[in-house]
Design a protein around this nucleic acid. Sequence first.
DNA 1: GCCTATGATGTGCACATGCGTATCGTCACG
DNA 2: CGTGACGATACGCATGTGCACATCATAGGC
Lengths: 146, 146
Amino acid sequence: MAQHEATPARKDLAAMIGPLGRSLVAAELPVLREHDLTMWGYAVLTALAEQPMRTQAALAESIGADKTRLIRVLDRLQHQGLIERHADPADRRANLLSLTPEGARVRTAAQNDIQRQEEHLLSRLSAEERTVFLRALDILSSASGD
Amino acid sequence: MAQHEATPARKDLAAMIGPLGRSLVAAELPVLREHDLTMWGYAVLTALAEQPMRTQAALAESIGADKTRLIRVLDRLQHQGLIERHADPADRRANLLSLTPEGARVRTAAQNDIQRQEEHLLSRLSAEERTVFLRALDILSSASGD
DNA sequence: GCCTATGATGTGCACATGCGTATCGTCACG
DNA sequence: CGTGACGATACGCATGTGCACATCATAGGC
């Protein structure tokens, strides 16, 4: 039928995604704790694993964190030997941020544990549902940041 | 390829769903404000639209809210004439909660606006992706509360 | 008719977060 | 070389939220 704009018979996206996200995050916390990581710490490691960052402000923006809060997170990661801060020789105000080998190792180990746990949830889906769901999720999560 | 259980080349679910959820919620807030509703108020109206509740504690649990915070939310909704609280004749400790006709109307109007906005995001998906995504999301969000 | 459990409500604590502001060093431009 | 912009850092404030505890009314069992 050529329906125009009637109320769709579905729950709100936010009503499904919000609680699901909170639940996933809650399940993730104990796993991260085993690796002695905070949520923000893990987010930083993941961001830096994709690409090193030239400034802390850029990093903060890329992971949606508050730049003033990020400092303590970086302090802790650096103290743990997981990241390095080097003054940019071209601009000594900026801190070049990079993972240490240990940081890369910890991040990979944590991600393995996290994704293994997420597989429990994804196992509720058929192979086709899983494939399409992950692809759609990637599309939407990329689009929502615009 | 018959891969066994190696690290999947995907982002963490939480890393995609979390920010997406926050983005959706953020987009929802101005819409709700137009209807003079808070996020929690809208959650209450939606829960009560599905089924009236016998106790406030049950309502709090069903929407994942803090039961002490919920009280102010209910006070406001009642003051706005959107819900009614009646002492249960069978148990005068309990408050039977129900939507008023006005509450049902406001909720429907708000949901229409919210879902219309969400359609913008969903339009990034093909018809097939959209169908499977919504179904999978429903499955996962139901499962995650267990 | 007591005693314990339950429901609604209020209060205070702890914590994370977002936001604005201030400081200090460094850079870039005139 | 001096002034304004920018990066990192620290601090304080307001808010939202979870949690524990306290109070009061009522229900239900003994």
